[in-house]
Simulated scan of single mutants.
Amino acid sequence: MNRPFPVEFRIEDSIAHVTLNRPEVGNAINAALVNEIVRIARICDSDKSVRVVLLTANGKMFCVGGDLTLFSSMGDQAEVQLKELADQLHKAISIFARMDAPLVIAVNGMAAGGGFSLCLTGDYVVAAESAKFTMAYTSAGLSPDGSSTYFLPRLVGIRKAQELMLLNRTLSAQEAAQWGLIALAVPDEKLNDEALAVCRSLVQGPRHAQSAVKRLLFCSLQNGLEEQMELEGHEISRAAASPEGREGIAAFIEKRRPRF
């Protein structure tokens, strides 16, 4: 019998749909799943027909993090094999973070450990009201990975990051929205519709300007004021000279909707 793909993938109407597909184990991260995510991330980065990427999961949970059953079977090879697994996850996250297309994440259930970390990488994150978020790493004797020590302090501040990572506090979807970890919490039955509506709105937007927003925000906390303003000047001048920029300016002057 053919085993199902650990990640489902399709491109439809300029939206790349990426769906974690190990629901029987809470979409736990193993080598097969993370290697497939890397492959898909490369496609999303290079395929110019992709205007937005939607990441979600099958089943009742978004992702419970690393497959601890797998970890326990590694024995003396745990250090080497876990480093390889983390490297692949980090490769996928790096590609998603730096690609032109916005990454929309729809959190359908529990996001723990590496699953929580994955949520932090989204450009727009919406969650079902039943979803919960917890770091969970130290409760298993592990330290965080998946970019969480980079993104989490930037989103909520160092003190709240310490609380989440050291005490493993579990946040509801509403609390995650209040903390600024996600954009919105919606009724479970409206999650897919809300995520698709956001994706369709982004598809209609200016690709160049959207990718510029990603680039500028990504480096803003590393740069000084003048360096960041220089980048802003570079990006806005490029945007104004692009076909999308010219169309956007013309549409504004003519009081009509732009056709990007």
Rank of each mutant, 00 (worst) to 15 (best):
S172K: 02
F71W: 13
I253S: 10
A241M: 05
L196Y: 12
V25L: 08
V38P: 01
R39Y: 05
L166N: 08
A176E: 03
K255W: 02
A251S: 14
P258Y: 05
R39I: 03
G157M: 05
M1T: 12
G59N: 09
L164M: 15
V25Q: 07
I93T: 02
A251M: 05
E163K: 12
S94Y: 08
S46C: 05
G157K: 05
R22N: 10
N30I: 07
L181H: 04
L33S: 11
E163T: 12
C199L: 08
N58L: 05
F252N: 08
V50W: 14
E254H: 07
S46Y: 00
V203L: 10
A250T: 13
R257T: 15
G115K: 12
S49A: 11
V186D: 03
P187V: 09
G26R: 13
N27M: 13
P258K: 04
H17M: 11
C44N: 15
V64G: 02
D13A: 15
K91W: 01
E244Y: 08
P187Y: 10
M74W: 15
S172E: 04
S130T: 13
C219T: 07
A111H: 06
N35L: 04
M229D: 04
A140I: 02
R42W: 05
M74T: 01
V125D: 01
R257Q: 15
M74F: 15
R259V: 06
K48W: 00
I11F: 11
C219W: 00
C63F: 13
G109R: 00
N168T: 12
K255R: 15
E189V: 12
R154I: 02
G141A: 09
F62N: 04
I95W: 12
V52A: 10
E24K: 13
L82K: 05
V126T: 14
F62I: 08
L217D: 12
E8R: 15
A97P: 00
V52I: 07
R51T: 01
A209T: 03
L155V: 04
M1E: 08
I253Y: 06
L196D: 12
R154L: 15
R98N: 11
A131C: 06
M61Q: 13
S237A: 09
G122M: 00
G59Q: 08
L33I: 11
L142A: 14
V80A: 13
M61L: 08
L142T: 03
G65L: 09
R98D: 12
K91L: 13
Q210N: 13
V156D: 02
L55F: 03
A209L: 15
R22L: 14
G115D: 10
M229Q: 09
G248E: 01
S49H: 04
P258W: 06
R246S: 01
R215F: 10
E254K: 11
I105C: 02
T69Y: 09
N223A: 12
R259S: 08
E254M: 04
R42H: 14
G114F: 07
Q228H: 14
S143I: 09
T56F: 02
E227A: 15
E247P: 11
V52Y: 06
G65I: 11
V52Q: 06
F151D: 07
A197N: 08
